[in-house]
């Protein structure tokens, strides 16, 4: 169903998405596809020598999950801005939940603008990412 500007209010939420637990294979696939081969995402031994308990996911992987939250909700063309602050590490096995909430609506030169607050939290409820987006809707 098409999401329309007039259907949204400040406080409206995007349907929440619970991602399957992060698999080591998925982190490896993301390393290959993104071209980010920092060893802390690939090699447990090197991750440990950098003070980590083992490999961690690229922050950009849960950010891509937030991107999916948006593109499953509105056409990608509607998205004008998308940003995220990486607030905690994500580990193999973590199950990440993506959420979004409307924080403002306005008429802008670009069109009918909806501002969103985005978050990704792990299974303990700890925030992994704090993000925001601007989308322009009919």
């Amino acid at each position: 169903m098409t999401v329309r500007f007039n259907d949204l209010e400040v406080g409206s939420t995007i349907p929440e998405r619970v991602m399957p637990p992060l698999a080591r294979v998925q982190i490896a696939m993301y390393a290959g596809a993104s071209g980010d081969f920092n060893p802390i995402h690939i090699d447990d031994e090197q991750a440990r020598s950098n003070g980590l308990p083992g490999i961690i996911a690229h922050g950009m992987l849960p950010m891509a999950f937030l991107g999916r939250l948006l593109t499953d909700w509105v056409p990608q063309r509607s998205i004008r801005k998308f940003s995220a602050r990486f607030t905690a590490m994500a580990f193999p096995g973590d199950s990440i939940t993506c959420r979004g909430r409307v924080t403002a609506k306005s008429d802008s030169p670009a069109g009918k603008l909806v501002e969103l607050e985005l978050s990704a939290v792990n299974q303990k409820g700890e925030p992994i990412l704090a993000g925001s987006a601007h989308v322009v809707l009919d």
């Binding site: 950098n50 922050g59 004008r80 940003s83 990486f86």
Partner: peptide, 17 residues
């Protein structure tokens, strides 16, 4: 040294796909 750094934030502004 890259190992002493973290990606703190990432932002995108879109003009065309």
């Amino acid at each position: 040294d890259k190992a002493r750094t973290v990606h703190g934030e990432q932002g995108f502004v879109y003009h065309n796909e």
